[in-house]
Computed example of a mutant assay.
Amino acid sequence: MKKIILAFAALFLMVQASQAQLLPSFKLGVKGALNFSSLKSEGKWLNSDTKTGYQLGVWGRVGIAGFHVQPELYYSQKTAGFDPESESENGEVTLKSMDLPILLGTRIGLGPLGVRLQAGPVFSFAQDGKVDLKSATDFENYKKSSTGIIGGIGADIRNITIDLRYEHGLNNVSTKSDQNQKISMWSIGVGYAFL
């Protein structure tokens, strides 16, 4: 009789756990991050130094059956130092944009503790740009939008989220076709879920 009761109890717990995975979850929060970006180019005309910038914004997460979609919207400042072929024309580029990543992911963990794996596209819309050069050049011609791919890992500790991500630009951010520049960026962020 004890074996039958234990078997029913185990079956009941397994059914409850599987149903909990099928219930949708929703989170909404704010985040901030430091980013370390550089401009990569084909050929040897540009050697970009990695510089520090920041991100500030909001995020949401809708999950079901162990998978989730996490759209975000944040203001981003990406800075890259550069040194073109001519050593007299080194300087710094600051790109300010509204970024919209749409991440697909999964969470591994129990209760308030969990590790996330996420990846997806990111769409950037330029807000303002500044080019600081030691000498005059036609380097300030950047597109108003760009697309990239982003991926990384994260951890959830109750309402606190921590993320480590890598972003790689997919298209040329320069308006000049002979200066194929793409953003490359690492970021580490902290967020808070208030829902």
Score class of each variant (00 low, 15 high):
Ser41Leu: 03
Gln118Lys: 12
Gly66Cys: 06
Asn159Val: 10
Ser135Cys: 04
Pro71Ile: 11
Leu95Asn: 01
Leu104Cys: 00
His168Pro: 00
Ala7Gly: 12
Gly60Thr: 13
Ser18Thr: 13
Asp83Gln: 12
Thr50Arg: 12
Arg158Phe: 14
Ala10Arg: 05
Pro112Asn: 09
Arg158Lys: 05
Val69Ser: 01
Lys176His: 11
Glu42Phe: 04
Leu164His: 03
Thr79Pro: 01
Phe194Pro: 02
Leu95Asp: 02
Ile102Ala: 06
Ser41Gln: 14
Tyr166Gly: 09
Lys3His: 10
Phe26Gly: 03
Gly63Ile: 04
Glu140Tyr: 03
Lys78Glu: 14
Ile183His: 03
Ile188Ser: 09
Ile149Gly: 07
Ile64Pro: 00
Lys143His: 05
Gln55Leu: 11
Ser86Leu: 11
Asn90Met: 00
Gln19Lys: 14
Pro101Leu: 04
Lys96Ile: 00
Glu72His: 13
Ser25Gln: 13
Thr137Trp: 07
Gln21Tyr: 13
Ser146Glu: 12
Lys44His: 07
Ala10Cys: 15
Gln55Phe: 03
Leu34Ala: 15
Thr137Cys: 09
Gly53His: 10
Phe194Gly: 02
Leu46Ser: 06
Arg165Glu: 06
Gly43Gln: 06
Ser135Arg: 13
Gly66Asp: 05
Arg61Gln: 15
Ile5His: 07
Arg165Gln: 14
Lys144Tyr: 00
Pro84Ala: 10
Ser184Asn: 06
Gly43Asn: 08
Asp138Ala: 14
Ser25Asn: 13
Leu100Gln: 04
Pro112Leu: 12
Ala155Ile: 12
Val58Lys: 02
Leu23Ala: 14
Leu113Ile: 15
Ala155Asn: 00
Leu100Ser: 08
Ile5Asp: 11
Ser177Asn: 14
Lys27Glu: 14
Tyr75Gly: 09
Gln181Lys: 02
Lys44Ile: 01
Lys40Met: 06
Glu42Asn: 14
Asn171Ile: 05
Gln181Trp: 15
Asp49Asn: 15
